[in-house]
Design a protein around this nucleic acid. Sequence first.
RNA 1: AGGGCUGUGGCCAAGUGGUAAGGCAUCUGGUUUUGAUCCAGUGUACCGCAGGUUCGAAUCCUGCCAGCCCUGCCA
Length: 558
Amino acid sequence: MSQNETVERPVNFIRNIINADLDTKLHENVQTRFPPEPNGYLHIGHAKSICLNFGLAEDYKGQCNLRFDDTNPAKEDLEYVESIKRDVSWLGFNWSGDICYSSSYFDQFYNYAVELIKKGLAYVCFLNADETREYRGTLTEPGKDSPYRDTSVEDNLALFEKMKNGEFKEGECVLRAKIDMSSSFMCMRDPALYRIKFAHHHQTGDTWCIYPMYDFAHCISDAIEGISHSLCTLEFQDNRRLYDWVLENLNDFDRPDRPHQYEFSRLNLEYTVMSKRKLHQLVDDGLVEGWDDPRMPTISGMRRRGYTPASIRDFAERIGVSKVDSMTEMGILEAAVRDDLNKVAPRTMAVMDPIKVVIENYPEGEVESIQAPIHPQNEEMGKREIFFSRELYIDRADFMETAPNSKYQRLAIDKEVRLRNAYIIKGERFETDADGNFTTIYCSYDPETLGKKPADGRKVKGVIHFVEATKALPAEFRIYDRLFTVENPAKEDDFEAVINPDSLVVKNGFVEPGMAGSEPEKAYQFEREGYFCRDNKSANQQVYNRTVALRDTWSQQK
RNA sequence: AGGGCUGUGGCCAAGUGGUAAGGCAUCUGGUUUUGAUCCAGUGUACCGCAGGUUCGAAUCCUGCCAGCCCUGCCA
């Protein structure tokens, strides 16, 4: 085993390759890169790639670049480069050195294209898009050579220069690699290397009117940056032949330690969509509030929802890396957040669907202060002040007139229950409105049960949460659920038709007064309910987003 | 015979010839002023199927089946 190998992380096929390359001294160190195209917001699938690339660099004491793959100005925008930088930083990763842009290598790409032309390996082709498609052949039939394939090197050089100088119209011609029109790899049938676009580029302005294609730019960018292991997703497996072809035909890069591409499977998560196109569509069609809607699988959405960087990194580690097309259960993501939040989230109580409770034997006008632990398993987090008085709120779900069975542990008439952090109370009677909904529950309390069990030894198993009515702060709760009703919405003809109508349910209730100064994005556990954070877009109001509910083994049992 | 990949318990995923890790989920106990957490325990996995090689195969060979990707001047 290589001494460079670390023991903490789970093994995967990429680590095996790296270990082998280090052992054979093919590479001295590990250099990776995360290469997003700035044409949308990052999502949890990107997070998997970010954690992989940056994680590898960290573990092997190598480096990882953040490189914007900005070769198509028509689709890209500065807004996206800003959001991507923000998301990567938020996840806790530091790119090595300055941010990289493929566009900063445009001069070099141009020169390498000239090198290929001079070697007779590239030519300017005037076939239009339709003709090119016809000439390409099909999956089962070879293509045929372009009539421009045998243009002389001198003419190609001149033509390519004219392309650069804007002497041709958009779409009039492209620079193509001269490879093999009968290759079984479609991407090897004389692929386009450069196309004309009179578009303003967010980095290079109007300097260029020709832009390199992904397959030409990506491998060279990797090589320029000295990337050792270039990791991408499965759909680029065929493209690897072109990646290799380009580098092997360029004098600067035709060497054993040039970058090599390895492909892993992209993340698919149940009940959501991961393609940028579909995510764009949800935003554009107004089906969600925006890229950072807490129901979106985007990094910014998850952040607003209350996910932490630690939980996302842990998730990435838990799902591993392989080449299998897979569909990951939401449960793994949820388990990862719960594990993190359970440790760090201060506990507090919130009543999201309030019913008034009147403690009839409690003195009128009196408000009692109680010190409650901020985290029952972690004394060091200290205490918080909560209140108790004659009037309280409990959650509607915690009261029934009569217990349905012996397992019922909540409040009912003639049944005792513990109020979390406070006294044991007993249901006495109730009032309803005209529709039969409970409006007020009248209870009695046992004054000898604050912080202790009943002296007579009677058992009170149930515990419900509450807030004191006069000091409670009104708050809005946004209860989020899966965005789609089916496991794999991408498979639907119209994925927007299977959006979960209950993916957001808004409730209005109360939180403890101590929540007045709660920070946006900071995780709290509303005891017995779940993990919540103050919405980062509603800073002046008491608005809480539910990150994830507590694990519930009870409601499933019926 | 287009080509490239992949098939290990419900979901992820180790394993690369020596007799199937781990996580999530499930279920069962215990603790508990969160039906949470925590603790302990819990799986007959025909290792896609069928042959073959071998003392021995998830691992090697052959054939088959299934799924995903490839015919953008997108990435």
